[in-house]
Amino acid sequence: MAADNTFIQEYSIKGWDFTRAGEASCEIKNILKQIGVSQDVIRRVAIASYEAEMNVVMYARQGTMRCEIDTTKIKITIEDEGPGIADIDQAMQEGFSTATPEMREMGFGAGMGLPNIKRNSDGCEVTSVVGKGTKVAMSFNL
């Protein structure tokens, strides 16, 4: 990627801050609309980035969402400082969730976030170090 043809933006995400939750993914969505990305890609990015953002809000202390956009690709990387995920394969399964009763009351905890990220992106990689944090990197082809 030639740097000057790439639009880069970084947002910070705070753990357990539900009043601002979803703002970063919403910003990215607006940027994509201004670039003229197709509605289908916008829809998929909206869903995937929102799920990743909410996982940071719910499970981690803090994190960042970085998006890189050029004319061929959108890359979104969410990195957090938090408990990490011990068994990533298990976490990626539909329905697996460690959400607390409080989180479920707020409508989360279906265990569909990570599977939905995978389904809606054209590539996604989850890496994690227990006790340190988690990184979700996803990409979308244009």
């Binding site: 043809n5 790439t6 201004q34 670039i35 003229g36 990305v37 956009i69 050029d70 244009l142």
Partner: peptide, 11 residues
């Protein structure tokens, strides 16, 4: 409409 009809220019 996007900022430019050409995505590269919009970026």
């Amino acid at each position: 409409p996007p900022l430019d009809s050409d995505p590269g220019k919009a970026i």
